[in-house]
Simulated assay, not measured.
Amino acid sequence: MLKERFAMQVAVHLFLVKDSQVLLLRRYNTGYEDGNYSVPAGHLDGNEEVKTAAIREAKEECGIDIDPASLEMVGVMHRLSTDERIDFFVATTEWRGEIINAEPNKCDELVWVDMDKLPPNVIPYVRQALLNFRRKEWFDSFGWERAIRVE
């Protein structure tokens, strides 16, 4: 009998960068981290390359188009939340179109903030990923210190 392989959620997060600022979206009406800031992000749909997912999320959430060549892979995080996850982080300073709140049913504010002066209610792992980006640290584990090991 074959054992079922472990599977985990995989997401991509997009850092839209303008000078020393990053675009944050305040989550609303989603049931996850509502009232807190994140960046454009979403799960990979399966059979979808990471940069393709970032481009899709940029269009869905911010109404902009991004050339894949302008995306830079800037980080990976192995994260323990309510389950185990892998998060990819990509950044760009180039896009076409005007940034708008294209999902007002899931986001109630878009704001440019200085990466050195993030608001206190940025989702903690996103805050850590932005700090890693500023430090040029490519990989991190997050949330594992809370894990309770049962032997």
Rank of each mutant, 00 (worst) to 15 (best):
E72R: 12
F15K: 09
R134S: 15
M77L: 01
E48R: 11
Y37Q: 03
W144A: 12
Q128G: 04
D116Q: 11
G63L: 07
N101A: 06
V126L: 02
P68N: 10
Y28T: 09
L110Y: 02
L130P: 01
W144P: 04
S38E: 06
I99M: 10
L14I: 02
Q128T: 08
R79A: 15
V126T: 01
R135H: 14
A7D: 11
A129E: 00
V113C: 08
R146P: 03
H43F: 14
L130K: 08
Q128C: 04
L25I: 06
D34S: 08
I148G: 06
V150G: 05
S38Q: 04
P40R: 09
L130S: 05
E72L: 13
V126Q: 01
N29Q: 11
M115N: 04
R27W: 00
V150K: 14
E145R: 14
R96A: 09
E48S: 10
P124A: 07
P104Q: 06
R149G: 08
V17E: 14
N47S: 12
A129T: 00
K3A: 14
F88N: 15
S38A: 13
R56W: 10
D19F: 01
A102Q: 08
W95G: 04
E33C: 14
A53C: 14
L44N: 13
L131F: 13
E84T: 03
A91L: 06
A91M: 05
V122W: 00
L130E: 06
N29R: 13
R96P: 02
G97D: 10
H13D: 11
V90I: 04
A69M: 02
I64K: 01
N29F: 07
N121C: 05
V10L: 09
D45F: 13
F142H: 13
I86N: 10
A129R: 05
G97M: 12
W144K: 10
N132V: 00
E151W: 01
C107A: 10
I64S: 06
P104A: 08
A129S: 15
Y37T: 02
E103I: 11
A54H: 07
G75N: 01
E60V: 12
G63C: 09
F139H: 13
Y28L: 05
E61L: 12
